[in-house]
Design a protein around this nucleic acid. Structure first.
Lengths: 222, 222
DNA sequence: GTTGTCAGCTTGTCTGAGGAGTTGATACGG
DNA sequence: CCGTATCAACTCCTCAGACAAGCTGACAAC
């Protein structure tokens, strides 16, 4: 018999399926380990590992002496996975939403430290656009965009941006590989313009310039 | 001896700490189970459960016969946790970013089915605003907002919105509990206005009205 | 050089034995 | 009647040992 996955993982999937099917409601107590083991036809330690895996995914919670309880009806969305599977267009539109709002807020909240950060990251990007290898250029570009979002001083927006970064990075790598002319290396002016608007404390202008730039990026990746 | 957490969880935390400290790089192979058990002074099955938990969190991956490998340097951000801990102001600004962009895109992509969805959810909300209990009203309100984002036909934006919903719901419950006059029940007009702009295929107007409404919501929750 | 074999490692699974914590029923004192 | 104490039965937690299953690199044969 060939088994693609270990028994413990199969058991975890089966438990997840039963939870999803409504067999056990939110907050309900699962049968004991020995009972479950008998039901699924596996050993007790296998059940324990399955439960432990779902505990790691924040679906189950076991309390010594009391039992195992359902604390979520399904596994929390794994954002890395969602972004990996999504169309790059959808991802870039999500990024646009986060970053234009970030630019808008940054225009009212930016500190002197944020402006200094803009200077550094823009200078880096300018240098990298000319002579650095692709990955340096990509990191320099992302660093500036991150500086903009950071200047919004909103923890949720920053965390959202960081969640998107790996997916965006991969897309940029793929694009630069296909596009020998590195056409995107020439839009330094657009980046300077965004920074200028934030520096000038003009929220609408900052948002507009950010939107303009990111729309162009999205279009170029189709 | 009093133990706050099970040994297996403590072992998982210890492994996570060591990974974070750079003891094992990305892709590196951990010592064998028996070795780890001896190092941490616990039984082999305890180590196995710790590894299984981190496998559930997509940090480790074990391959039979080969070993246990690091596949992520830290646990993926648990968005429920991030949103729970964040200031409600930051959360609502994130929601505003997502939803205004959603409204903008919806104005160009909405289908007849989306418009029908608007009619239904708006009617529900109108009824609930007058006489329904708090939780019905909250669900009706969220249903309309979700309909707007859905009409953008962008899987990432929809998923983002759904991630925010539980946190927003809790905030609304708390607010309605404290505010006997239910002041927010009277802004049905603002919702109709958003739907009208999307119906009229006016992206800028839809975004502006969405922003206006959500700014008001954010201000009222301070 | 290429291929086949295999010994020695690894993780996977089961079982049995206690330890430790929780819960609800029951008896007791007020 | 109510509050409290006790306790038995249940639960999960941890360990140890045994064997199965799978991978890897060394080494011999060709």
């Amino acid at each position: 018999m060939i088994r693609r996955h270990p028994l413990a993982e199969q058991a975890a999937e089966e438990l997840l399926r039963r939870i999803g099917s409504g067999e056990w409601a939110l907050g309900a107590k699962l049968p004991g380990e020995t009972t479950l083991a008998a039901q699924l036809g596996v050993g007790r330690s296998t059940i324990r590992e399955a439960v432990r895996e779902l505990a790691g995914r924040r679906v189950l919670e076991s309390r010594q002496g009391a039992g195992v309880f359902v604390i979520a009806l399904q596994a929390a969305e794994d954002w890395d996975k969602v972004l990996r599977k999504a169309d790059i267009t959808d991802v870039l539109e999500g990024r646009l939403a986060i970053e234009t709002e970030g630019a808008r807020l940054a225009a009212t909240r930016r500190t002197p430290a944020d402006l200094k950060n803009f200077r550094y990251t823009l200078a880096d990007r300018r240098r990298a656009a000319v002579k650095a290898p692709d990955d340096w250029y990509i990191e320099a570009d992302l660093a500036f965009h991150r500086a903009v979002v950071t200047a919004a001083h909103n923890a949720v927006l920053t965390e959202l941006f960081d969640t998107f970064v790996p997916r965006i990075r991969r897309a940029m790598i793929d694009m630069l590989k296909l596009d020998e002319e590195h056409r995107h290396r020439h839009d330094q002016a657009a980046h300077e313009a965004i920074a200028d608007a934030i520096r000038a404390k003009d929220p609408d202008l900052a948002a507009a310039r950010s939107r303009e730039h990111l729309s162009a990026v999205r279009s170029s990746m189709n």
